[in-house]
Amino acid sequence: MSNASPLLSVERLTKSYGGIHAVRGVSFELRSGEILALIGPNGAGKSTCFDMLNGQNTPDTGRIRLLGEDTTGKKPREVWRLGVGRTFQITATFPTMTVRENVQVALISHGHQLFNLWGSASGFATAEAGRLLDLVGMGSYADRACGELAYGDLKRLELAVALANQPKLLLMDEPTAGMAPRERIDLMRLTARIAREQSIGVLFTEHDMDVVFEHADRVLVLNRGTLIAEGSPQEVRGNPQVQAVYLGEGLVYDERHRKGASA
């Protein structure tokens, strides 16, 4: 870890539901421009962790700092204002609005125009909306209804929406779930490129180990709410504890598996 203050620092985060510890004492840090993967079998506590990071959920104990500021217990919208974009495991978009309008809503919010009752929203920041959509390759879909998009397109739209407030940190919960293999690679390459260019820190969870090992700078492994390993993809891959966890899950990520379709 560098000595410069990290973008995100998480200290001993704990959350339990009725006696079941979903997350136990998780601590880690994330630097600007770094791509960090959070992996683990189902039920390991990844989503709980994520929800606490952007305020969807409040930790029982522990502390979350973003750029030195304590964001523990802050609401999602407050966390967002500090420069955190988020995508969801199951995409959350505005289905009755067009693709462009989806991005415009985020831009309106970013521009503090939410209570503007008079202006024309369709003309609001169209150029910026277009730029963001082009960035994720959705430019030609701008006028389509969001509700009729394919799932992969929704994921890309979510990324564009998450980028609307020029975030410093992106939280992506299974960004490639439900996408075709080709799309996964494209999306993660795109994310990585944006992260490097704009020096955005990215934290993502992922089931697809191909995606993880190809794009993550560092990997955190969560099992039953506890961090069991942390390190570069190579280090984690070689960790016997991690292998045991994943074997127990029936998921193998050896060479044979990498050739096949990953699911």
Partner: peptide, 11 residues
Amino acid sequence: DSLLRSEAVGI
């Protein structure tokens, strides 16, 4: 349309 998403974009 989506409370989740709107809260997540600062609304």
